[in-house]
Design a protein around this nucleic acid. Structure first.
Length: 261
DNA sequence: GAGTATGTTATATG
DNA sequence: GCATATAACATACT
């Protein structure tokens, strides 16, 4: 499911349906998704609490339960869905929160890479996980500065949540494609102009995806995400899209307009 | 069966 | 200790 735009869609979905509701019952179906705490500890800190709001930082969600924050990370395959009435749970439901309007908020996650937990404040959580600034909040100046501090491939830098939070594999590729920069370029070898261009494209790409509710088919053909298929023609030149491994992740790019150096 | 998957982090290495 | 690279986690799908 989730990079920043997908997580933002989930945030809006939950905000619309759960804010103002009270959690009446909690059922943990698989305690492996709890972030270093026992089901009993978790349940006692969220049960009977009203949901005051939901915020997002990078790919991380925070449900404001007044005296505590419930943290939700969707991992690779996590999702939050609201069930009305007696509908049956999805196959990989890991936690169920009954709400006072009769609906149920369900955390579903086949691969169980996600995590649910509690924290006292966003600052504590960000500190503990050393999260960088949110990709849509970070200033151009700050991004340029942070990206200059690493000698790693720029692709790996974009994926590093400690540097900037929210960009994942697909949007990193898209941002570099739009910037016409080779993913292997050492981050500190990029000019200030190039790093600035990447900052612009990250915002452009994330916002464009949110604008189409992360339906890639709705993105213009000039987006890699519209048809991210190796061997298909680059929208800008005669090149054919290629893939390679960067930092252990599959990376799709155009070898012509994202020439290496 | 092999390979791959929108993520994070513990562990290894230099 | 630091920066970086890689393995591991669990499941589904091609």
């Amino acid at each position: 499911m989730p990079e920043l735009p997908e997580v933002e869609m989930v945030r809006r979905y939950v905000e619309e349906r759960c804010v103002g509701r009270t959690i009446t019952k909690v059922k943990i179906l698989d305690e492996a998704i709890l972030d270093r705490l026992l089901p009993s500890q978790f349940v006692s800190s969220v049960r009977c609490r009203a949901v005051r709001g939901i915020s997002r930082h990078g790919k991380q969600l925070f449900l404001d339960l007044a005296s505590t924050l419930m943290t939700v990370h969707l991992g690779m395959t996590g999702d939050l869905i609201i069930l009305k009435g007696r509908k049956k749970l999805p196959k990989h439901a890991r936690a169920v929160f009954a709400l006072d309007d009769g609906t149920r908020l369900v955390y579903d996650d086949p691969r169980k890479f996600g995590a649910i937990g509690i924290t006292s404040s966003f600052a504590d959580f960000a500190e503990e996980h050393r999260l960088g600034p949110d990709a849509l909040e970070i200033s151009k100046k700050e991004f340029i500065l942070r990206a200059q501090k690493s000698h790693r491939a720029i692709k790996s830098v974009l994926l590093d949540q400690h540097i900037v939070a929210g960009v994942g594999n697909l949007y990193a590729d898209e941002s570099l494609y739009q910037s016409r920069i080779n993913p292997l370029t050492a981050s500190d070898d990029l000019s200030e102009e190039e790093r600035g261009r990447i900052w612009v494209e990250i915002r452009h790409v994330l916002n464009a995806s949110i604008d189409v509710s992360t339906d890639f088919q709705e993105l213009p053909g000039s987006f890699l995400l519209h048809s991210r298929v190796v061997g298909s023609p680059c929208h800008r030149c005669n090149g054919l899209l290629q893939s390679m491994r960067v930092g252990g992740r599959t990376t799709v790019f155009c070898p012509i307009c994202q020439e290496s150096r």
